[in-house]
């Protein structure tokens, strides 16, 4: 008999098998980043709570009925026009703002570019947007409305931020987030924080969800 060498197992296709498995896992892995419209609920009011009296001109009423139709300030409106209507209302600045916490009197809105009409909101920090929906309203529509209102605020904040700091509010917030994480930018954190806070208080998001009608 001829001398035979111990036959080796052919491992050439091993790589193919491993690649196949690898690709399978690569494809099925989903990095799902959860994202959404975030909201903060108001705290539960105490039993004897009397709601403060708010002037009607400072409330922007958005009603969504069960057929997903919009009624904004007693007029029918399409969803596409909602953002501009909300901007017009928030940015009106027809009067003086709320008094400061230290008792200083409220100031008129010096950054507003609205019409300064007597019949619309006094100041962005007094302007309340009230969304009243029906129990039967579709959730998709509700989110769309919330989104449009948030877009109105974003647009106003971006405008003010560009005017004052030459960058948009989104970029400002991003810079603040980065500065917080990065130790080498420590000296800028305080400055950026103040800027972000300033814009946020200039245009606070006051969107209230009324209890739905049934």
């Amino acid at each position: 008999m001829a001398r035979r060498e111990n036959p080796e197992i052919n491992a050439g296709s091993m790589a193919d098998i491993a690649f196949l498995l690898l690709i399978f896992f690569l494809v099925t892995t989903t990095m799902n980043v959860d994202s959404g419209v975030s909201k903060k609920l108001s705290e539960k009011p105490p039993k004897d709570y009397v709601p403060p009296i708010i002037k009607e001109k400072n409330i922007f009423v958005v009603i969504i009925n069960r057929n997903n139709e919009l009624l904004v300030e007693d007029e029918r409106m399409q969803i596409n026009d909602l953002k501009d209507a909300a901007i017009k209302f928030i940015d009106n600045g027809g009067g003086i703002g709320t008094a400061g916490e230290d008792g200083s009197p409220g100031k008129p809105c010096d950054y507003c570019q609205g019409e300064k009409s007597e019949l619309s909101s006094d100041h962005p920090n007094k302007a309340i947007i009230s969304v009243q929906s029906d129990r039967g309203t579709e959730y998709g529509m509700y989110i769309q409305v919330q989104n449009e209102l948030l877009r109105a605020y974003t647009e106003l904040r971006n405008r003010l931020s560009t005017q004052k700091y030459k960058i948009t509010f989104d970029q400002l917030e991003q810079a603040y987030g980065e500065a917080k994480k990065n130790a080498s930018l420590k000296d800028r954190v305080e400055d950026l924080k103040n800027k972000v806070e300033f814009i946020k208080t200039a245009y606070p998001q006051i969107i209230s969800d009324a209890e739905p009608t049934s």
């Binding site: 959860d34 994202s35 959404g36 419209v37 975030s38 909201k39 903060k40 609920l41 108001s42 705290e43 539960k44 969504i64 929906s133 029906d134 129990r135 039967g136 309203t137 579709e138 959730y139 509700y142 989110i143 919330q146 989104n147 969800d209 209890e211 739905p212 049934s214």
Partner: peptide, 24 residues
């Protein structure tokens, strides 16, 4: 329906879970 969401929201408020994210 928004009604369902509102029911949940009221319950969340009862237990002081005030941070909500509507996933989109």
């Amino acid at each position: 329906n928004v009604g369902t969401i509102t029911d949940i929201r009221l319950k969340l408020r009862d237990v002081n879970a005030l941070k909500i994210s509507y996933s989109t």
